[in-house]
């Protein structure tokens, strides 16, 4: 599904290249649950951003679903966002001015899903995540865990084939974190959604089936779990 070849990323500063990623080559297949781990500043988030096409690599090639997406125009990239990729953020990033229902609805509107289809998908997601009662509340009326549930529901609304999560439990207490991770595992196993997450926690990484250890921009280890 994802094929990264010799991805490099550096920032040139007064002629000195500060490498963030060096020669990263890896393949992620459909249905995998990959955790990217490593110390602060290792380049985990940059790698995830490149996978998510939020940043472009300085060098190297990137194929997504067999298509070269190394540098893609806005329209094409947004097509991928609408149909294939869901993002989950550490700070949830719900839109404060929209209710829970509207937040989940937003990607569907961009994808131009018909209104009855929209209503049933949202109802389904609300039901599945047990947040039906909260649908008219605004994000600041929810706890962190609840907000992250909404964030995940929003990411799933467009029925993506892959979810990219940047420390999805970084701001949560352990009980809530466990709940989220269980949910991810379930999505991966039951719905076959590919998941790539960045995490600090060894424990969270165990929910997946593969771990990429990164340090100083280089993939040090690629281990299978379980």
């Amino acid at each position: 599904m994802i094929q990264l070849n010799n991805i490099e990323k550096y920032y040139a500063n007064k002629g000195i290249k500060n490498y963030v990623l060096r020669l990263v080559t890896t393949t992620i297949k459909q249905g995998e649950f990959v955790s990217i781990m490593g110390p602060s500043g290792a380049g985990k988030s940059t790698l995830l951003n490149i996978i998510g096409m939020l940043e472009e690599p300085t060098y190297g090639s990137y194929e997504f679903l067999g298509e070269d997406v190394t540098s893609l125009n806005e329209r094409k990239r947004i097509e991928l966002y609408r149909n294939h990729i869901g993002f989950v953020f550490q700070a949830y990033h719900l839109i404060d001015e929209m209710t829970v229902y509207e937040n989940i609805e937003a990607p569907l509107l961009y994808k131009k899903v018909g209104s009855s289809e929209r209503a049933s998908r949202i109802a389904d997601l609300l039901d599945r995540f047990n947040i039906v009662a909260k649908k008219d509340l605004f994000p600041n009326q929810l706890s962190g865990g609840q907000q992250q549930l909404v964030g995940i529901a929003r990411a799933l609304a467009a029925q993506p084939s892959i979810i990219l999560a940047d420390e999805p439990t970084g701001n949560l207490q352990s009980a809530q974190a466990e709940e989220i991770m269980t949910l991810f595992k379930k999505l991966n196993q039951e719905d076959g959604i590919t998941i790539i997450q960045v995490t600090h926690s060894e424990k969270n990484a165990q929910y997946g089936n593969r771990i990429l250890h990164i340090a100083d921009g280089v993939v040090k280890e690629d281990v299978a779990v379980g």
């Binding site: 806005e74 329209r75 947004i78 966002y81 609408r82 993002f87 719900l94 937003a106 961009y110």
Partner: peptide, 16 residues
């Protein structure tokens, strides 16, 4: 800014 970013990764075009 945050809202713009989130909307963009949800599939919003700049025009929208």
């Amino acid at each position: 800014g945050k809202e713009v970013g989130v909307r963009k990764v949800m599939g919003s075009l700049r025009r929208q």
